[in-house]
Amino acid sequence: MGDLRTVVIIEKNLLIQAGLESILSELPRLVIIGFYTGDEPNLNVLLTKQDPDIMFLNPQCLDVPAANFLNQLKGKINPLIFGLLDDNAPESLKSPFADRLMFSDNKQQIQNKIQERCNLNNDPHDKAQVLSSREITILKHVVLGLTNQEIADKLFLSVHTVMTHRKNINKKLGIKTVSGLMVYALMNQLVSMEDLGDKI
């Protein structure tokens, strides 16, 4: 979604949830897309579906150790994770988190930590949001129905590289589905109706 960052908060204490929401609302480019209390039985499925950029997690509201929980998400989603931590919490609870927000932190400290780690201050316009010619080629193949493997073979790339290109295309255009990409490709005359046949 361009340079906006999506955020989820996992915290059972509602005062802290609401407090963090208010602090985040003063920072640029952060959009909260989910609040959880940590006891949802299918939480890892829901998070995988949402694929947030940033996650605030209080390990004390999970019914499993935070390290196990984070392991379940590994490989599927890769958000930047901040621990929400009680100052008195044992070191074992704090250790899975490189980035920590402590309950005793004041507003300025919290905002500084987030801004520093999330690079909220850099100029969003420094990277172009238009597609490169390689990305346009890959986009055309995608809407014509080729699989990642077929595209990789055709362009002498690894499947991994094709997937990275596709992710960047989705991000730049703000379009996630193949049929959404078809609309874009047709409107910009990258492909024709005849090329797509009965796919659309």
Partner: peptide
């Protein structure tokens, strides 16, 4: 997620 298409539609209308 039937919501993904709604996300796309918003972006298509606003951006493209």
């Amino acid at each position: 997620n039937v919501e993904e298409k709604i996300f796309d539609l918003k972006n298509i209308i606003v951006r493209h």
